[in-house]
Design a protein around this nucleic acid. Structure first.
Length: 426
RNA sequence: GUGGGUGUAGCUCAGUUGGUUAGAGCGUCGGACUGUGGCUCCGAAGGCCGCGGGUUCAAGUCCCGUUACCCACCCCA
């Protein structure tokens, strides 16, 4: 058989596993301070949840979904992102009935059928947060600040990060603007690439994203939404900026920031990093989606959220020297001199563990010397030596690996002695 | 989907114009130290040289194909 993880997936060995738990712990603690509660939605949904929510014309829906038919003939899709599922769940369980506001967060794997490269996987992890039924611009700023603080908390230097901000308008001003851009593209059809001409019909705004130098040059002359905003959107946008200014969060306005999901309205944002990630420089991003719930047949329910990528965040942390916790911490190692004292050694290890001390012992019948090597490698601060000599008088030897000091301790007092040496309060 | 790069020990990599038994460092295991780690020294284990085909007296080395991974385009976390 082919003992290899599928293309675009990877096994997360202990060091990564530890980092994953750290990211989740850190997010849970921080998000709770902003009033967010955890939810876990299925890893797969009815395909329609994504096609209607994210938009048929987006790259995600048109070519990146893992879609299959289950044995009951239903079209099922592995979730390519988290917002659609959370909004679907909120509707299903009436979490936003009668104008109720809710703040939810989630964490887990997402799936997109893409060509892998640095910072881009077919299965990747995201943490996301969603605030539903909160139309005020204050929550936009709150969510953006929470995302920014998360990266700060992880120790990614702000000098390596950049917060981009833009507004997409709403159903009042966007359609007209969209038509203007489409018209602009038709006027300049001959100067633009094939892809941009195709975008004229599907999503003209994405032409701003084109990397083709000539297209960029032409599009630089296109009308900007910022000059076409309706009154409501203009006021909302400037209120968001005022709140960010008040907290001193350093955003950069980017009128060309266009996110690839159809559901965004008004505020959109993205956090980019300049270290560790090849050409994929966004570690988190999101925006407002005031019409999404209606796509699912629900009542008008404003929403706002972001998602951030675990893999990319970890890469940014490593590249900028941020603290990443180690896999395991062994405090004490129990070494046995020979097989005759195995029972006693096992008892000592068990007692230490029961008292809350991270303890490891040999299970491979290795020599005492190699047990010490192992203890050293594991970073154990003490070694309890269980041998026939000391055991004959009901004792064991406790060695401090730092000072090399050894003391004889009565078998019954070893737990207290170790805890004392490690300075663990009762 | 398109393009480029790379596949040699567990890991990082050498391998001269094709030429006998394929190497190093790190790691692992053992020993020097007969019940004791980090340093040093000595030794050992560990390779269908990605896979298939071709050229040749001879291929890790050249050619073709294939596959995997990496990187980039596109897009996004």
């Amino acid at each position: 058989m082919n003992a290899r993880a599928p293309k675009g997936t990877s096994d997360m060995l202990p060091d990564v596993g530890a980092a994953w738990e750290y990211l989740q712990r850190t997010a849970a603690a921080l998000f709770a301070r902003y009033g967010y509660a955890p939810v876990y939605t299925p890893l797969f949904e009815h395909t329609e949840v994504f096609t209607r929510g994210i938009g048929e014309a987006t790259d995600i829906v048109s070519k990146e979904m893992y879609t299959f038919e289950d044995k009951g003939g239903r079209s099922i899709t592995l979730r390519p992102e988290g917002t659609a599922s959370v909004v679907r769940a909120a509707l299903e369980h009436n979490l936003t009935a009668n104008g109720q506001g809710t703040k939810l967060y989630y964490a887990g794997p997402m799936f997109r059928y893409e060509r892998p490269q640095k910072g881009r996987m077919r299965q990747f992890w995201q943490i996301g947060a969603e605030a539903l039924n909160m139309p005020d611009p204050s929550v936009d700023a709150e969510v953006i600040v929470m995302l920014w603080r998360f990266f700060e908390t992880l120790g990614i230097p702000t000098s390596h990060m950049r917060l981009l901000l833009n507004t997409m308008g709403d159903e009042q001003c966007r359609p007209a603007y969209r038509e203007k851009v489409a018209g602009f593209i038709r006027e300049h059809s001959a100067e633009l690439c094939e892809e941009c001409n195709r975008r004229e019909a599907t999503n003209p705004l994405r032409a701003f994203d084109c990397k083709n130098p000539q297209c960029r040059e032409v599009m630089a002359g296109a009308p900007l939404l910022r000059d076409e905003l309706c009154e409501g959107c203009a006021a909302h946008y400037s209120a968001v900026k005022d709140s960010l200014d008040a907290l001193g969060v350093p955003y950069v306005e980017d009128p060309r920031l266009v996110r690839g999901l159809d559901y965004y309205t008004r505020t959109v944002f993205e956090v980019q990093v300049d270290a560790g990630l090849g050409s994929q420089n966004a570690i988190g991003g999101g925006g407002r989606y005031d019409r999404l719930m209606e796509q699912y047949g629900g009542p008008p329910t404003p929403g706002l959220g972001f998602a951030l990528g675990f893999e990319r965040t970890l890469m940014a942390m490593q590249a900028t020297g941020a603290f990443v916790p180690a896999a395991t911490v062994t405090q004490v190692y129990v070494a046995r001199v020979d097989e005759s004292v195995s029972g006693a050694a096992f008892g000592v290890a068990a007692a230490l563990r029961d008292s809350g001390v991270a303890t490891e012992m040999d299970h491979q019948s290795r020599s005492l010397k190699s047990q010490f090597k192992q203890a050293d490698r594991l970073g154990a601060r003490m070694v309890v030596v269980v041998g026939p000599d000391e055991l004959s008088s009901g004792q064991v030897t406790l060695r401090d690996m730092g000072s090399k000091e050894e003391t004889r301790v009565a078998l019954g007092a070893i737990t207290a002695a170790v805890r004392d040496a490690l300075s663990i309060a009762e």
